[in-house]
Write a protein that binds this DNA or RNA. Structure first.
Lengths: 345, 345
DNA sequence: CCCAATCTTTGAATCGTTTCATTGTTACGA
DNA sequence: TCGTAACAATGAAACGATTCAAAGATTGGG
């Protein structure tokens, strides 16, 4: 258990000054080939590894970016995280990942931690009201980019997905198939995502004369909640049935599908075309592969890093020039068997 | 964008020495109440936040623990991560999370990063052959605990789950229900987990006279692969059918279930009792809620942190005393409807 | 009122790196 | 051969927290 070698040890070993070793590491062009070789060999022989703490201390900031997500278990965020990590790696930064688990105090702890670590910047899907903390961070030169959340005002950059457009896309798809009696299945509309998706669907329906949209409230956003709604549907008489169902997420859609499949009185997609939202892994391997709306998670993660980089650039010389952008992505329709084939009836 | 306040600023503002501020932060008992109040007020007024880089530099090590998992999207690891984070927080450490995504080069990058960050220790589910790196780390006083992987030799501590016991548990459960013609569905037995689970199942079957175990090879570990196996089963004649099926993971089991449900010629659990492995979220919300084997992920994460703490303690005074433990957890049977009720036939 | 013991506070030294003003070296044209 | 660019290498200072020996303040017993 030998003390780790320092730059000074390397310098001694290679018979050069510490500054030279530092130059080899940071500005190789400033050093002659001969010296460089000698230093690199010494580094190798001693197994020298930069002490990031010291480097950071001197530099005043780290090469890390903090990222706080609501739930790493959620495939949406998993994908965002991975894209952000890759994008950050390209520009030479590393991502410190924090999982708030929808818990405001965990979130706050991570902000504390990242602040102590002097991260370059912060990407966050906020749980609680963190605007005060974020203002404080910005004041200290640590910019923030909101992820999957439109900035309330123009105070921050943000990346998000247009849920209204997604809802429109889903409903429009059902309408294009010739379906006219649509139903929307979704949890409490107090959840913004749900409300926006519904609104988009309503917009699409309003464009088509003779089309209607019924709203079926589900008790939550789970497979079981979906099955509850599906059980209600199968009890209806034929003339009360929708011919196209749009669920606010894939879990609900899978639940609805289970109900219908179990009763096997109604066929998907012939009697009822079904579409979900999120395009989770299970969508493709459902009994009837589920059509869905896919969110561009990779683009979200990548862009978040880019916006952060922009903010960092903008902060350099002229202080505090507000230079924020809100990038809104449009989701994508994925057609599978649950809405496939010919038009209705 | 004011430069962040340092401990010296706080000292000036509170009219005390820097050492006193440090004491307030680290050894509050050594400081009189009056001074403490004054310092705390100054900290508050200036919005002082510790610079972790400086602290680390002086201390020679950080308060962070590196954790590298194979796939953060996998619920197994998600749960381990969360437990580890919580356990670490209790002892005042933070976890830096890295996702290797089964990629040896990503894994290596994370080891580099963590080494530069001078993490206290490392928890890792290795992809590639990292023993050399880990040896090097240990030599520098950074202990490692292997996660979900039994240490090859006694060189490292490790936490893992006994897959053989899990397989035994599953098969034993089917046998206890009175089933005698069992089938095991699993991907290539080159995967250690699959092989171990099969071996455990065979052990259980061997204990019961008249019981048999057929091995059905699946093309992978997915829902679709499971459906492939299920489709084969439903084509069999009644006297060739197993009455109990144990799948090497829940995805396979869900696929088998889909097949049987779609054909609705065979009932679960009456005709075939079905059990999976992992107890993923979807198990409970399957058409027929799926029995499964649950791995004690929280205990894994918590224990990994504990073992790391033990190693750190052991390294203090007497150098290099090898003090490694391999903790093996036993998984747990979760009975749901897919194996519920009376015994067979 | 003095002394010793105890409790507080002080501030210089330290950790390992980067920075940068200086000094040292080399090469080349005059 | 000299002067001067251009290039290399040097090493002290700085970053911000912690440590610890030493100085200073307070207390209580005699």
């Amino acid at each position: 258990m030998s003390r780790s070698a320092s730059i000074k040890d390397v310098a001694n070993h290679a018979r050069v000054a510490v500054g030279t070793v530092s130059n080899v590491l940071n500005y190789p062009d400033r050093v002659s080939q001969r010296t460089k070789d000698r230093v690199l060999q010494a580094i190798d022989e001693l197994g020298f590894i930069r002490n990031d703490a010291a480097r950071q201390l001197r530099a005043g900031h780290s090469r890390t970016i903090g990222l706080i997500v609501l739930d790493v278990g959620n495939p949406f965020f998993t994908s965002v995280v991975r894209a952000a990590e890759d994008a950050a790696a390209l520009q030479g930064s590393a991502v410190l990942l924090g999982d708030s688990g929808h818990d405001a105090s965990r979130e706050s702890n991570y902000i504390d931690l990242f602040q102590e670590q002097r991260v370059q910047g912060l990407l966050i899907s906020p749980v609680g009201d963190v605007t005060e903390r974020l203002d404080q961070l910005r004041e200290r030169g640590v910019p923030t980019v909101l992820v999957d959340r439109l900035a309330d005002d123009a105070k921050y950059s943000s990346v998000s997905v247009d849920d209204d457009a997604g809802g429109y896309l889903a409903a429009r798809h059902l309408l294009d198939l010739g379906r006219r009696r649509l139903a929307f299945v979704g949890g409490p509309t107090s959840i913004r995502q749900v409300a926006d998706r519904l609104q988009g669907a309503q917009r699409a329906v309003a464009e088509v004369p003779g089309a209607s949209l019924e709203v079926l409230d589900s008790a939550g956003q789970t497979v079981l909640a979906g099955r509850g709604v599906g059980d209600q549907l199968v009890r209806r008489s034929a003339d009360e049935l929708p011919d196209g169902v749009f669920c606010a997420n894939d879990l609900l859609a899978l639940g609805v599908m289970q109900s219908l499949a179990m009763m096997h009185t109604l066929r998907i997609p012939e009697d009822i075309a079904l579409i979900g939202y999120d395009d989770i892994d299970f969508a493709v391997s459902a009994v009837v592969p589920l059509s869905s709306i896919r969110q561009p998670t990779e683009a979200l993660g990548r862009t978040a890093i880019e916006l952060l980089a922009e903010e960092l650039d903008a902060m350099g010389p002229t202080s505090l020039r507000p230079h924020h952008r809100a990038v809104i992505f449009t989701p994508e329709l994925v057609v599978r068997q649950s809405t496939a084939g010919a038009s209705a009836h």
